[in-house]
Amino acid sequence: MSTIAETASRGQTRRRMRVDGWRWAGRIFLVFMLLYTALPMIWMLITSIKSGFAATQFPPQWWPDEPTLASYQKLLDPQNSVGQDFLRFFWNSLFVSTVTTILSVIVAVPAAYAFSRFSFPGRNFLFFAVLLRNMFPAVIFLVPLFILMRVLGLMNTHGSLILTYLTFGLPLAIWLLKGFYDNIPVQLEQAARIDGATRFQAFIMIVMPLSTPGIIATAIYSFIGAWNEYIYAYTFLSKNDQLTLPVGIQRFFSENTTDFPGLMAASFMMSVPVVVLFLILQRYFVRALTEGAVKH
């Protein structure tokens, strides 16, 4: 009797140990991934509060002897030429990203709705054409777009970027939104139409409010995509006062190759808007991506 009980309890312990083994492996792995993810960002922050001299020490100062916000002050000071440039770039990025986002939503919402609800001839073809756009690298479009922009007289304007980013972001935006519309029962619109709404009213009054999370998610994606875009901005813009942040920073620091605290501070400042946006709205952000990709 006692032996059986003993065996049973030993089996229990072994079982628990095996389960715990997996759990511990998972925890250790997560710690490793956390370090991999966070340490570079932490090092960026630490460097950004060093003086230029402190940053170029060997061995490095793990924590600066004299922490200073000088780099940030320089970047944000409108009196200073560096600050003027940086604020200018920042404003340009904000402008381009915001306009792109608004236009994306305006164009993507009806398109996604149509792809989700209607079945007109060529619907599947068009939808896959839109999706396939995502497969092609910027470079393929770069040369002809470069020429197209010259023809349209949009070289060195923000219009060239907005137009390009719009097409860049549209496929994903349409895809994400379609996922949302697919999940809204068609009976709701039918009910609305029977209740006296036209098709358009049903869309505006019933479907639109329900797809707000999707629209928010789409907007964040467009914004972040436009904010971080580099290659078109790098190619289309050459005048200093037009540059967006990624290009502007690169221009600036290819001239000042040793100002690492400044570079780190600028990288940090450039990341702040998108990271804040992401942290506030991450619920929608993650959901949208997965609704599109996983559920249908």
Binding site: M33, L34, T37, P40, M41, W43, M44, I224, W227, N228, Y230, L245, P246, I249, Q250, F253, L263, M264, S267, F268, M270, S271, V274, V275, F278, Q282, V286
Partner: peptide, 15 residues
């Protein structure tokens, strides 16, 4: 863990 995906590749490259 998601933050690196959100920030600009330009910033990541410099970091």
């Amino acid at each position: 863990l998601i933050i690196p995906w959100v920030i600009s590749a330009v910033a990541a490259s410099y970091i």
